[in-house]
């Protein structure tokens, strides 16, 4: 599933990275604890989170994640978006809750992959 397709099914907004929209992902991880993401993200290349601080982007960077999806209407500030731009990490924001976000992506064929 491409980032563009994820954006569409989640009614999400691109906050950064429309030029990365064609990147393809198969595995997704979701958590608000970044230590859990670091421990268990495995081969996932998309991160779903409701946490909103610069360490989310740093964590994604360490794991070579290509897209962060912020749920529950959380909006990263300009500092976070600048960090994401610098690392070419796409950023989406959806108003869906985390459970719903995960469910929609699962229905569309994405899986968790440790």
């Amino acid at each position: 599933m491409t980032i563009k397709e994820m954006q569409e099914v989640l009614d999400a907004r691109f906050l950064y990275g429309e030029e990365l929209a064609d990147l393809d992902a198969q595995y997704v991880f979701s958590a608000d604890m970044m230590s859990d993401v670091l421990a268990f993200c495995g081969k996932c290349s998309v991160l779903i989170t409701g946490l909103c601080n610069p360490q989310v982007v740093r964590t994604a960077e360490m794991l070579d994640i290509c897209c962060i999806i912020f749920v529950r209407g959380k909006l990263p500030d300009e500092n976070m978006l600048a960090l994401a731009r610098g690392k070419s990490i796409a950023v989406l924001a959806t108003s869906h809750y985390m459970f719903t976000t995960c469910g929609i992506l699962y229905e569309n064929g994405l899986r968790g992959g440790a």
Partner: peptide, 13 residues
């Protein structure tokens, strides 16, 4: 913890 860390995973990780 509200910043996403401090869950007791740092040293084990």
């Amino acid at each position: 913890r509200s910043l996403g860390f401090g869950a007791g995973m740092g040293l084990p990780n």
